[in-house]
Amino acid sequence: MAETLNSSAPHIHGATTYDDLVDWGVQSDAIEGVSKSSGRLLFKGPDNQPETGIWVCTPGRWRLSIPREELCHFVAGRAIYRSDDGEVIEVEPGTVVMFPGGWTGECTVIETMRNVYMLV
């Protein structure tokens, strides 16, 4: 059994390789390349809080603005996040990042990345 989304505690087994993903389209605000996103929503609460799931994104570079606090546990791939104030965050498998709401900058995906996220 790979997923049980309607459980009292929704869960996905094998989140690092789970492949029943939904096409979420092209990443908006592209700067370079055409990054495509896919994923699987695990849970979305009232007023969309919290929202948690798996997100996969192919190589490319784009602007981003994170609307609410977002915890990301990167389990595959490599990417570089650059904040508007110049901070550089390099991610690879095993990296966990807590982005504060309102964080702005850009993301460059070097190798298709996968992360398990929670947006609150």
Rank of each mutant, 00 (worst) to 15 (best):
M1P: 03
M1K: 06
A2V: 10
A2K: 14
T4N: 13
L5V: 09
L5Q: 04
P10H: 06
P10K: 05
P10N: 12
P10D: 05
H11L: 15
H11P: 06
H11G: 08
I12P: 00
I12Y: 00
I12N: 02
H13L: 15
T16K: 14
T17D: 00
Y18M: 08
D19P: 09
L21H: 04
D23S: 13
D23Y: 08
D23G: 10
G25S: 04
V26F: 10
Q27C: 12
S28Q: 07
D29V: 08
A30V: 09
I31C: 09
V34R: 06
S35A: 15
K36A: 02
K36L: 12
S38Y: 08
S38I: 12
L41H: 06
L42K: 02
L42Q: 03
L42S: 03
L42V: 12
F43G: 04
F43V: 04
F43A: 07
F43H: 11
F43Q: 05
K44A: 04
G45H: 01
G45W: 01
P46E: 09
P46Y: 03
D47N: 15
D47V: 15
N48E: 15
N48G: 12
N48Q: 12
Q49I: 15
Q49G: 14
Q49W: 10
P50Q: 13
T52S: 12
T52D: 02
T52G: 07
G53I: 05
G53Y: 07
I54G: 11
V56S: 00
C57D: 01
C57T: 09
T58H: 06
P59E: 02
P59A: 08
G60F: 03
W62L: 05
W62Q: 09
W62M: 04
W62E: 09
W62T: 07
R63W: 00
S65G: 10
S65K: 10
I66Q: 02
I66T: 10
E69D: 15
E69H: 12
L71N: 06
H73A: 15
F74G: 05
A76T: 00
G77P: 01
G77A: 08
G77K: 14
R78C: 07
R78M: 14
Y81R: 00
Y81H: 03
Y81C: 10
R82G: 03
R82D: 02
R82L: 13
S83Y: 07
D84H: 08
D84L: 11
D85R: 12
G86N: 03
G86H: 00
G86T: 04
E87F: 11
V88I: 13
E90P: 02
E90T: 09
E90V: 11
V91F: 00
P93G: 04
G94D: 04
T95K: 06
T95P: 07
V96I: 15
M98L: 11
F99K: 02
P100D: 09
P100G: 11
G101S: 05
G101Y: 07
G101M: 07
G101E: 02
G102D: 03
W103T: 05
W103R: 06
T104K: 13
E106Y: 05
E106Q: 08
E106N: 05
E106H: 08
C107W: 06
T108F: 04
V109A: 00
I110C: 00
M113T: 08
M113V: 14
M113E: 04
R114E: 02
R114D: 00
N115T: 07
N115S: 10
V116E: 00
V116I: 13
M118P: 05
M118A: 13
V120R: 03
V120K: 02
V120E: 00
